[in-house]
């Protein structure tokens, strides 16, 4: 799943060469701002056919948190 999430990240946020690992922080490592996060979440919803309520956004601080969140939502 990390691979797929990484692919979506790269595409949505134009992060062609960034080093993306589970512990990568959106804010500190990738300088992703809150607007970018909205974009990312929209793309994840579409890819995994789930709904991510916007109040959950603040938990999604790292790539690992996103992967974990998606797993808990039953995404594959």
């Amino acid at each position: 799943m990390l691979e797929k999430v990484t692919e979506i990240l790269r595409e949505q946020l134009n992060l062609e060469n960034a080093d993306i690992q589970m512990e990568t922080s959106f804010k500190e490592d990738l300088e992703v701002d809150s607007l970018d996060l909205f974009e990312l979440v929209m793309a994840l919803e579409e890819e995994y056919d789930i709904e991510i309520p916007s109040e959950d956004l603040e938990q999604l601080t790292t790539v690992g948190a996103v992967v974990e969140y998606l797993k808990n939502k039953g995404a594959e």
């Binding site: 607007l35 909205f38 979440v41 916007s54």
Partner: peptide
């Protein structure tokens, strides 16, 4: 809002 994705999200909630 300052972007489209946020606007859509706000509409939905």
């Amino acid at each position: 809002v300052a972007g489209v994705a946020m606007a859509k999200m706000m509409e939905r909630c």
